[in-house]
Every structure is written in structure tokens, then in C-alpha cells.
């Protein structure tokens, strides 16, 4: 399902215009980020939870140039399925 279909679907169910709906999606993403930045887990019942993980820096070899490079540390978002959802799709 692409973005257009998804937004149209949600907009229809909540009775808002698709453009408004997309704005709200952006706001939701923003709020999610704010919550995650404070080192919290966002739990969506029946689906899973979003959390942040810090990745340490590491040395890697660039396959095209063959040179060794240093990848900097970073923070990433991780999504983990809940056990109920896991059982549902298996």
C-alpha cells in the first residue's frame, strides 16, 4: 500500500481531508520523535513498540575503494513486534 492509498484510507475513516491527514501524519511522526528523544519506549498495543538504540562507532571497509573507514556512532529507531502480533502473523 503506498502513501496515497494509506492517507486516503485514514482520511476517509476520520472524516478529514487527505491533505489535513498527511499533515497530521507528519505531526504524529514529530510527536513520536519527541517521545523517543527522551529515551522512552512508545508502545502500540497489539502491534509492537518503538525504541531508540545507540550504535557504537565501527571500522568498515568500503567495498568499492577498498579503504578502511570509520563509521560514526549514531542513534537509530527500532521497532519490535509484540508477542500477540507475532502469533497473529505466524
Amino acid at each position: 500500500m503506498n502513501n496515497k492509498e494509506f492517507i486516503a484510507d485514514v482520511a476517509g475513516k476520520v472524516a478529514v481531508a487527505p491533505s489535513q491527514c498527511q499533515k497530521m501524519v507528519n505531526e504524529l511522526a514529530d510527536t513520536l520523535a519527541s517521545a523517543l528523544e527522551l529515551d522512552n519506549e512508545v508502545v502500540v498495543a497489539g502491534l509492537g513498540n518503538f525504541e531508540t538504540k545507540q550504535k557504537k562507532e565501527r571500522i568498515m571497509v568500503n567495498p568499492s575503494t577498498g579503504k578502511k573507514m570509520l563509521v560514526p556512532p549514531k542513534i537509530v529507531i527500532n521497532f519490535k513486534m509484540s508477542s500477540t502480533y507475532k502469533n497473529k502473523i505466524n
Binding site: 573507514m69 537509530v76 502473523i89
Partner: peptide, 27 residues
């Protein structure tokens, strides 16, 4: 079966803000 989530660029950058100025460099 499992569900994977890859965040959008805006979301990814927002979360990684503390390390925004870091870049990979050649050793």
C-alpha cells in the same frame, strides 16, 4: 514472519540529531 520498520529520512535525522555532525571518514 516479521515486521520491519525503516524510518523516513526526516524521522531518522531527527532522532540522530546529537550525532548529526558526525560523518564517516577514511582511515
Amino acid at each position: 514472519n516479521k515486521i520491519t520498520f525503516t524510518p523516513d529520512k526526516t524521522l531518522k535525522d531527527r532522532i540522530n540529531r546529537p550525532f548529526a555532525n558526525f560523518d564517516t571518514m577514511v582511515l
